[in-house]
């Protein structure tokens, strides 16, 4: 097992110049690690839809690449997005940060705890590049390969759950985030 912070520190080492889309409990952790205009904190969000939003950016800007930091509870709300990702090959790496909890609502277990196998779900959806890591050492050793190469790729990371987390807030207002992102993508405002 590893902490969310340990998991994301490794992502940071390998993100290069890609857009990183975060949501829910990954927001404050990633914001503490990175302040790039290519970071897009999907808060406020639509529940479970960070993979779709990331896919849209990846399809629009295929030269850039997108990493999505999704939660396990979020993933369960939108399992169909795995099918959609498989159906539209794009340069996108979807990380499922699996702590077995709805962390931002107080740590309640979700419906998939103990039996949902996200790697099998991704393979069954047609994703060909699927990776699973359940401890810090293996993630550290495998991240370079998993986070490189063509998308779509799904990376399932088992991380420690935390209790007592605050409702996540983005580091800046959405309008400012969008302006920064589009400027970094060299789009007219």
């Amino acid at each position: 097992m590893m902490t969310q912070q340990q998991a994301l520190e490794i992502v940071k080492r390998h993100r290069n110049n890609r857009v990183v889309v975060t949501t829910m409990s990954a927001v404050p952790t990633w914001a503490a690690l990175s302040d790039s205009p290519l970071d897009f904190h999907f808060i406020p969000s639509a529940m479970g839809h960070a993979p779709d939003l990331g896919l849209g950016i990846a399809l629009a800007r295929p030269e850039r690449g997108v990493i999505v930091l999704n939660g396990d509870g979020c993933m369960l709300m939108n399992l169909g997005s795995l099918i959609t990702l498989a159906n539209h090959p794009a340069n996108i790496h979807l990380l499922i940060l699996d702590n077995g909890l709805y962390e931002v609502t107080g740590g309640q277990p979700h419906a998939g705890v103990g039996h949902a196998d996200f790697a099998e779900l991704a393979r069954g959806a047609g994703i060909r590049r699927v990776y699973s890591f359940d401890n810090h050492d293996s993630w550290q050793a495998g991240a370079a390969e998993a986070l490189a190469g063509p998308g779509p790729a799904v990376i399932w990371l088992k991380i420690e759950g935390r209790l007592g987390q605050q409702t996540p807030k983005p580091p800046r207002p959405m309008s400012e985030q969008i302006a920064r992102l589009q400027a970094a993508l060299e789009l007219p405002g």
């Binding site: 897009f40 896919l55 849209g56 950016i57 399809l59 629009a60 589009q182 993508l185 789009l187």
Partner: peptide, 8 residues
């Protein structure tokens, strides 16, 4: 939304 953010 993602496509619009990316300029499409």
């Amino acid at each position: 939304a993602g496509l619009v953010l990316g300029g499409k």
